[in-house]
């Protein structure tokens, strides 16, 4: 349990879906305590796959996942939730037929204590959700849905939050706001590991960045380093 090792790390992960070909090839992603780590890369690079692998949603052929010093490679996703991991997947990340409030309640499913405080915190973070709390989540706009999704994941009071493209499909203004909210969450001490399509903006707020290409680590460094790297700029940031 050394203090210098990352809080959450998927280390040298190799694996794919079911019996199919490997999609990840010795891929490593990690996040340190109190930091924001961002994963960028072209479509189909395996970013979502890497996130799922860290969350135990596909079985690894090689490599391991370590959370706070414990090897959790063999744990099921539910057990990882209990261990304090929260995950917002890229797609179908809300319960569309249930109300906003029920979505948050389901987020808190594993908690047996009173979670009204946490719900209030989520409502403070995303005030629009409070107005819409009796509405079916499926009836919300794309940006509002993303807020529900993040709110749901926050309900467990996770020790680490994993977000797969939280700003997908939202307008630039809402995107800026979401980034602000994410920074706010990270300030409360929750490490955040996220995949982002808006690479430049994401790397600006990132402490650590990972560039994946075809299931492999292409570049790794601090956000600033990657933004300054000519190679990365040319291939991923449009010059």
């Amino acid at each position: 349990m050394s203090e210098t090792s990352p809080f959450l790390i998927g280390e040298a992960m190799t694996g794919g879906y079911g019996k199919g070909a490997d999609i990840l090839h010795s891929c490593t992603i990690a996040v340190e305590r109190g930091e924001i780590a961002v994963i960028v890369g072209p479509n189909g690079a395996g970013k979502s796959t890497a996130m799922k692998a860290v969350f135990g949603m596909l079985s690894l052929r090689e490599g391991r996942v370590v959370l706070d010093g414990d090897d959790i490679t063999a744990l099921s996703p539910q057990d990882r939730v209990v261990r304090g991991m929260g995950f917002v997947p890229q797609t179908s990340n809300i319960f569309t037929s249930m109300t906003v409030e029920e979505n948050l309640e389901m987020g808190a499913y594993i908690r047996r204590d009173d979670f009204r405080d946490t719900m209030e915190q989520v409502y403070t973070l995303f005030p629009i959700l409070k107005d819409k709390r009796r509405q079916a989540a499926g009836e919300l706009s794309g940006g509002q849905r993303q807020q529900v999704a993040v709110g749901r994941a926050l309900m467990t009071k996770p020790k680490v939050l994993m977000l797969d493209e939280p700003t997908a499909g939202v307008s630039p203004i809402v995107m800026d706001e979401l980034f602000d909210r994410i920074i706010e969450v990270s300030r409360t001490g929750i490490p955040i590991l996220m995949v982002e399509q808006n690479a430049r903006q994401a790397l600006e707020i990132a402490d650590k960045g990972f560039v994946l290409v075809q299931g492999r680590n292409a570049h790794t460094g601090t956000g600033k380093e990657l933004l300054a790297n000519a190679d990365v700029r040319r291939s991923f940031l449009g010059g």
Binding site: T96, E105, M106, I110
Partner: peptide
């Protein structure tokens, strides 16, 4: 509610720790 959640979105129900 957890049953409705499971019926609505099985994968997400798993991610919420619903058994």
């Amino acid at each position: 509610k957890s049953m409705r959640a499971f019926s609505d979105n099985e994968d997400l129900a798993l991610l919420s720790g619903i058994n």
